[in-house]
Amino acid sequence: MTSNTREMACTTDDVFRVLANGWLYPAWVVGASRMRDVDESWPAAGSQLHHSVGVWPALLDDTTEVLEWDPPRGIMLRARGWPMGEAQVTLRARTTPTGCQVRIDEEPVKGPAALIPRLFTAPMLRWRNAETLHRLAYLAEGHAESS
């Protein structure tokens, strides 16, 4: 599993307003390129985002499902990106004196990516998730609204 944390100059509620808007997913998740649909029940457990990953013309359609929704503390997702596989992604937020701290943990759990030794996948996931938290901070600190 890889972990990244970031201090943000906003509240945990600001972070969860962004997470609650499924249409913002490609704005903060590195690799997600477009949204095709968001389940009406998003972000309830079991709901899904229907997104594409990659760059045109090599786009792959897939989904991300909410496993646990516990605002303003955490969200657990099952992110699918086949043919690479699936990952469990958990974001946790906590209040700090200057705003909040958000932690993202990612663990490949299915498919070819789960078979690659962490020695090789961890550096790439850390880099990607540092940028993911950077983008999430822009949206949360800018007070992006939920749909």
Rank of each mutant, 00 (worst) to 15 (best):
A122H: 09
E65W: 02
N129K: 00
V66W: 05
H50V: 12
S52G: 13
D105R: 01
P83V: 01
T63L: 13
E86L: 08
L60A: 15
E65S: 04
A140H: 09
Y138A: 11
K110Y: 11
H51T: 10
V109K: 04
V66M: 05
G54F: 04
E65I: 00
V55G: 15
R94M: 04
L59H: 12
M84Q: 08
E86T: 09
G74K: 10
M35I: 15
Q48H: 14
R128Q: 15
M84S: 08
T132C: 12
D105P: 00
F120D: 07
Q88N: 09
R36G: 13
H51D: 13
R135Q: 08
A45Y: 07
L49W: 07
P43N: 11
L133C: 05
E86I: 00
A45S: 12
L77G: 02
D62A: 03
V102W: 04
W82C: 05
G74S: 15
Q48W: 08
T63R: 15
P83K: 03
Y138N: 15
M35G: 10
W127L: 12
P83I: 02
T96V: 02
A58H: 12
D37T: 08
D62F: 07
A79T: 07
E68Y: 04
R118Q: 13
P123S: 08
I116S: 10
G111M: 02
T95C: 00
P97Y: 10
R135G: 03
L115F: 03
T90E: 14
A58W: 15
P112S: 11
T63E: 14
G74W: 03
W127Q: 11
A93C: 07
C100S: 01
E68G: 07
V89K: 01
A44F: 13
A93W: 03
D61I: 03
V53D: 10
M76Y: 04
W127C: 06
G111S: 07
T64I: 06
A130C: 01
P71E: 07
T96K: 01
E106F: 01
